[in-house]
């Protein structure tokens, strides 16, 4: 589904290469995890895939079901079925969460040539999905992420994911800032979305999240490339021994 080949990326504003030839293939129905130390380029990878400004792709490609992502605007990537759950969800004062969700859902439906949801249909859908994530009516009414706790922000990301039903979901350190209960709730939300047609790329520092969202494949990223790939046991190895041993072994 997601195919990344030899992806090289630099920061636009300074001559600093962050990604140095990332190769990664995520198949439909699978959950891949990327782990790695700080500064290894994990978040950059997620931003580049989602289309954030400020990065320059100097080589390589990234495709989603054969469509070249790197040529598309962020909204076009979203319409293709790509979704990034932000590490730091953005607070947008003055934009109601509900308005935001409905605009996003309908923008994507429109882009795909589907009928837009009317207010009643939308409300019914969002209420059902919000309830399973323990998001109350008040959170839906408030401005996007404004005054939300860390856990509420992450749950709101998962709600967006559930509403938009993307086929390729990237979760960028969704566990950061979450206590155990909140993490369970978020993981349940993610697990509920797992199906044969959907793939996940879960970026995390810690093995903890992977106890709840069981990965099929685990990649270790260091210094801008994937240095080791294995099964779930790789995450446990990191948890026990840190990155040092793995990095030393591949160096």
């Amino acid at each position: 589904m997601l195919e990344i080949k030899n992806l090289n990326v630099s920061l636009e504003e300074e001559e600093k290469q962050i990604l140095k030839g990332v190769d990664l293939t995520v198949e439909a129905g699978k959950v891949h995890a990327i782990m790695g130390p700080n500064g290894s380029g994990k978040s950059t990878l997620s931003y580049v895939l989602a289309g954030r400004d400020g990065y320059e792709v100097t080589d390589g490609s990234a495709t989603l079901d054969g469509t070249d992502l790197l040529d598309l605007e962020p909204e076009e990537r979203a319409a293709e079925g790509l979704f990034l759950a932000f590490q730091y969800p953005v607070e947008i004062p003055g934009v109601g969460n509900m308005t935001f969700l409905r605009t996003a859902v309908n923008a994507q439906r429109k882009a795909r040539g589907e009928e837009e949801l009317n207010a009643a249909e939308f409300l019914k859908l969002v209420r059902a999905k919000a309830a399973s994530l323990k998001i109350d009516a008040d959170m839906l009414k408030r401005p996007v992420n404004v005054g939300f706790s860390g856990g509420e922000k992450k749950r709101n990301e998962i709600l967006q994911m559930a509403m938009l039903e993307p086929k390729m979901c990237i979760l960028d350190e969704t566990d950061s800032g979450l206590d155990v209960d909140a993490m369970k709730l978020v993981a349940e939300g993610v697990n509920a979305l797992r199906d044969e047609g959907r793939a996940f790329l879960v970026i995390t520092h810690y093995q903890r999240l992977l106890d709840h969202i069981k990965p099929d494949v685990v990649h270790i990223m260091a210094d801008g490339r994937i240095v080791k790939t294995g099964g779930p046991e790789l995450a446990l190895e990191v948890e026990e021994n840190g990155y040092g041993d793995i990095l030393a072994a591949v160096a």
Partner: peptide
């Protein structure tokens, strides 16, 4: 705000619509 704009567009909202949303939000106070 570029970060807000990216957040909105990453959800599939066009840049023009996202800008309008931020304009409306800006004047809402």
């Amino acid at each position: 705000d570029e970060t807000s704009l990216f957040y909105l567009t990453s959800r599939g909202i066009s840049k023009e619509d996202a800008t309008d949303m931020l304009v409306l939000a800006f004047v809402d106070e």
